[in-house]
Design a binder for these strands. Structure first.
Lengths: 165, 165
DNA sequence: CTTTTTTACACCTAGGTGCCAAAC
DNA sequence: GTGTTTGGCACCTAGGTGTAAAAA
């Protein structure tokens, strides 16, 4: 998932342990179509694949650890493959999603279910529509400009390629 | 770790779930020296870093799954860095190790500790001495010949490099 | 026809090799 | 001196990019 979800945390107990996790959840009950240049709801959502909790790989870690740096979920991966066995979040194309963020006080990942308190946060700015082809040039350009793996498509490289022909 | 530990399993219950794991354990209580062309014990072993259980990433899976293919632990990684936080097995250089292999009947990785039965196997042919520089040309050549990442050192590539000078 | 999905591609990042020289 | 460890290197595999064209 790019850009990655990045969070700055405060108010944790420095010496307590926390497990951090996110879940990609449907933002509404609709299926969308891209029709004549616009996203429009088009019927009821398809059956939703089982949701997979993505646990931040630093978990468990102290409040001190989490608060000392920007917490990045850049290793969260998405797929439309229902048979996926690599732990990716499985999404329906053409559906709208939003990220749920969880903070659980727990000393072990396996204790997460028994944590005394699990705080849940949802940020509206994390909403997106899952697609198989981009429909928005600004998104495309944002990815080319900032995703290291897309460096080959930046201006300089593209110009050079033309010059060499 | 190369070559990787690879096992063929039989006798599992096809429809029960199992968690598979390995642990790199000291083979004896000695520290070794490579002196005048030979490995010789030289004093008591250094304090052993905490052992880390490496759980096979397919876990948990059915007996059927494990028996249907060669089970490979090629993602097990080793380090001499005591501060490692990436889950590598932490070893003392110049010490001798052997692999312990565990089969636990369990539906979840987190249940491993409560598994009714944990079978332990140790194969003498998995023993090795941890080094920071090879002392055995046959090992070096075996790695060059068979490890894909060392392809650059194979005959053909090496010859080509000379020809081009 | 329009919309959505898949595939092959050149190009890039990330990181696993033994080698060598230097440091210890 | 001998034995052990580290860092930089060229070379490789593995896999993450958007593109374009084909397929559905």
């Amino acid at each position: 998932m790019f850009p990655a979800l990045r969070l700055r945390l405060s108010g944790l107990q420095p010496n307590s342990n926390y497990v951090l996790a996110v879940e990609v959840t449907p933002a509404d009950g609709a299926r969308y179509k891209f029709q004549s240049g616009r996203w429009t709801p088009a019927g009821k959502a398809d059956p939703e694949p089982p949701k997979r909790l993505y646990i931040h790989p630093d978990s468990p870690a102290t409040g001190q650890h989490w608060m000392a740096r920007l917490v990045s979920f850049h290793k969260l991966k998405l797929t439309n493959n229902l048979c996926d066995k690599q732990g990716y979040a499985v999404l329906n194309s053409m559906h709208r999603y939003v990220i749920n963020f969880y903070i659980a006080q727990a000393d072990q990942v396996s204790q997460l279910a028994f944590s005394r308190s699990i705080d849940t946060f949802q940020f509206a700015e994390t909403a997106f529509i899952a697609v198989t082809a981009y429909q928005n040039d600004k998104i495309t350009q944002l990815k080319i400009d900032h995703n290291p793996f897309a460096k080959g498509f930046r201006e300089a490289a593209a110009a050079l390629r033309k010059d060499c022909k």
